[in-house]
Amino acid sequence: MNDFLLFAAGFILLTVAAGLFRVLRGPGDADRMMAAQLLGTGGIASLLLIASATTVAGVEDVALGLALLAAFASVAFVNGVATDDEQPQEAGGK
């Protein structure tokens, strides 16, 4: 069973890594931003799987911290972009 959990953790990390390098390439900054989001979710999944297979205390708390801060990069991204090209918030529709 433990081997299966570890295998699943490795598999998720592998697929996430493939997606990671895709979005890191861009072309836009928003694509790159998705990389952090992707690794956040996949990282938490593999962390929980690894934690269940090997006994390390406090892994759930690490996952909890990652989950709590998972949206932070996106928040900073939207905010940082906004402070540059100060566009009005509701700049019309498409």
Partner: peptide, 26 residues
């Protein structure tokens, strides 16, 4: 606790998807 972690990820995911989606549309 596990369910709480999932709920937090759902919340973060929903919020970031909207934030990024909006930045893309802008």
């Amino acid at each position: 606790k596990l369910l709480a972690i999932w709920a937090l990820v759902l919340l973060s995911g929903a919020a970031s998807a909207q934030l990024i989606g909006r930045a893309l549309r802008r």
